[in-house]
Design a protein around this nucleic acid. Sequence first.
RNA 1: GAGACUGUAGCUCAGUUGGUUUAGAGCAUUACCUUGACAGGGUAGGGGUCGGGGGUUCGAAUCCCUCCAGUCUCACCA
Length: 961
Amino acid sequence: MSISTRYSAEDTEGKWYQKWLEKKYFHSTPDEREAFTIVIPPPNVTGVLHMGHMLNITIQDALIRKARLEGKNACWVPGTDHASIATEAKVVKMLREKGIKKSDISRDEFMKYAFEWKDKYGGIILEQLKKLGASCDWDRTRFTMEDKLSKAVVKVFVDLHKKGKIYRGLRMTNWDPEAQTVLSNEEVIHGEENSHLHYVRYQIDSDEEIETIETERLKRELAIFERNIKNLKRGNDKKLLKSNLTKIEHLKTQLAAEQDKLNWVTIATTRPETILGDTAIAVNPKDPRYAHLKGKRAFVPLINRSIPIIFDRYVETDFGTGALKVTPAHDMNDNEIGERHKLETIDVFNANGTMSEAAQMYIGEDRFEAKKLIIKDLKVSGNLVKIEPYKNKVGRSERTNAVVEPRLTLQWFMDMKDVSKVALDAVKDGEVTFFPEHFINMYRNWLAEDKVKDWCISRQLWWGQRIPAYFLGEDFFVAETPEEALAQAKEKTGNNALTINDLQQDEDVVDTWFSSWLWPISVFDGFETQEELKYYYPTNVLVTGWDIIYLWVARMVMAGYEWSEELLGTEFVEKKGKQPFNDVYFTGMVRDLNRKKMSKQWGNSPNALALIEKYGADGVRFGMLSSASAGNDIIFDAPFDKKTKSVLNESKLCEQGSKFCNKMWNALRMLKLLEKVDNPTTVEAEKINPLAKTWMDNKFNQLLETMEVNYKSYRLGDALMNLYNFMWNDFFSEYLEMIKPDYGAPIDEASYDEAIGFFEKFMTILHPFMPFVTEELWHQLRDRKDGDDCIISSYPKAESYDKSFIKKVDTAIEIISKIRSIRKEKGMKDKEPLKFYIKKTKTVEDLFNLDGLEEMLVRRSFISELKYIDTDEVEGTISFISGTDKFFLESTIKIDVAAEKEKITTELEYTQGFIKSVEKKLSNERFVQNAPAAVVEKEKQKLADGQARIKILEESLAQLN
RNA sequence: GAGACUGUAGCUCAGUUGGUUUAGAGCAUUACCUUGACAGGGUAGGGGUCGGGGGUUCGAAUCCCUCCAGUCUCACCA
């Protein structure tokens, strides 16, 4: 039989994925088994596979495959998100390229184009996930904007409105005066631009004289001088009189200037045209310069409107003049200040960016023109103090490049007060567990009572679920259907002649997150029928990036607590909980070697599909997992081309994965190529092979235990590395070498079967990480009946194991390694048969009591003859220590006494240093008293062993002399 | 500006509630080996005052304080 010397991922992966699909292994329907559920964080429907997805998907797939192997009913629900903003922007761009403007077509026409676009490009990403081996239940693929899910959105909107949790309110939004639409924060590009800071003075509106410490001081001083004058006039020192009079004049001017200063307050602004909309001047309450302005008012220049002077901590004392004009209609912060101080709001702009009637001046002029005009007028009126050049950040519309105006618009909000507390408590109380834990800090940072902001759920877009509010003039009716809204309208107005055409549905759609927050419920159609929800809810784990902890994770928790009891009943939630998922595993961001976040924009992300092609899906999965630890960012090792500075589709870690595939492949090849006979052909094999088997059995259980600990805390990378190291070092390098017959010799059937049996188990436990290669090898290992596949094999349960047995074999392996090391150092051949002597002690006796151990050692380290001796010295050998025992290896070359001495001295010094530190500990009374007995005991053992080693080393040194 | 996280070998990371060890892994690197399952291999090495400085403790990579550096989130200065 001939098998290629290399494993080919290319030939394997597609084949098995197809087979799994045919066999419907990914499909889940409720049954009597325990469910294990994951809902995918739905990628953007128009997205393409990137590194972040690969990491995320690999982790989810590993978890779901493990659960499947453990006999659970594993259900991984895939799907996509409609991503309002991003998708609409793409559709608008596509239309523009066709010469169609969004404003020229109807809503229905636009939606037709959008769905065409979605059908064409949507779901590409899902096909790409298959390349990676994702074992999603594709029959359950959902889309956040499909009918059923949209109905759920409308339903919860109506429900929340009924509960009084949804309201309409004015809110500052980013307004594009050119496109005349609201933009989301993501659509505004902020950039530094050259501008000017205008210093404008406002006159204080006050009849009474304003006193400050300075004016009082001046007045006092003036009074003193005036008194002096009276006396001086009586005297005859004309010179002194004159100087005093001058001083008085001076003081009077100073006082006048000071008082004049007090009658004005100067502010600095980059936007003088909004002065007309000022409704207050704000200063910092701690600013001594303005303390005298408490309770005062000032006049807006040119229009002379009297506005209050208010004190607000927001104002920075060291910026500009420390006084800020407040225009609540045209600045986000001013708006907040306005809310705090209940200020009037005057909108001086029209929707198209021209001055409105409320401005009183320059009505109808464009805002940029108005700016020029007002500067001129302020100069004329004497209010303009100075103009300084200034750089500031200006927001421009991503689409039209128009300067974005903050503008108050009516939006829909969801009250977050109660739900945020519920969501925070869910994590605090451990109903939802975060991995890593510390993300609760970030979570709290957003949800804490004083931090949380109401959720603006309306978006001025078409691509999304339209808000189910129907207007009749100023009145509106929220209902699941227009008919219901009509009924409500009829009842409210008492007008039975109303028709649906009299009602106007809100133009806006809801935020995309307002549909994805229902995902863990809606993918099971939970708002319609609870049959499946009862089986799959709460889902087991959510795997997502921490960047959407607020946007998505927190909101899903809110939705879960809001509706699960209504849907599933009190009894159910008392038993299983209301939470949408029990655990949340936060993956890190994938970064490049410069720690920059990988993104399309930067062009620093390798091509995901190219990587899969190069290293195989298994190789890439290995690479992703081995660099992934929960919560920590992943520095992906794709190098950059030095010349072009572009990222290469290469990765050492992925290469390691593909090498691993090859290693397994070749180990299998070796086994398959062996000739099999009924009985062991050598005495050694008869002894060694059972030892090897027992050792592997014990070690395997130990491995399962270690991996399980790592699985439990989602340390998948660690679990994989446990397995990788174990397979490579213990299974391939040690075990297979132990049982491998001499070249050309046959192996006995029993030992062969045992090896295949172990191999098989490894395939099962490796399967979650590297599904393709394991499935392929699973089938290479034995002839399989139809349906006997690795993907549904059963995950072995850890059994107890004998630690002291493992320790003994490991000690023997250590001795073998030392023998090799000496051969290497001394330039002796690896396989040249040499004599070997062991100083007989209790420990040695105990060690080699183990059946087969001696034979194993002899065979693995090419020993011609093994003898136990009682002396401390053997002629023509090199000695070494393992543990506290001494061994002697025949040396065919002359010993370099000096070098040997140096080596022993170095080791001696190290051991002495070590002993010293242990002694120091033990001689410390407080240590002996305070440390746990076990720790002290260990230290004592360390001391005893160390002393024994020193003794041997000293002896060896003495013999060399 | 507020907050969070990270800093351990050339690189990427472990170090599991302070105590098997004067610090571990993988990769990279060095030397040697290699017709025998695998050069996509084997064997053996080298490499770290655990970011700096204080403190708590019998004992600190681990806990506390402080400083420095990086990353990110939120808020962004009229």
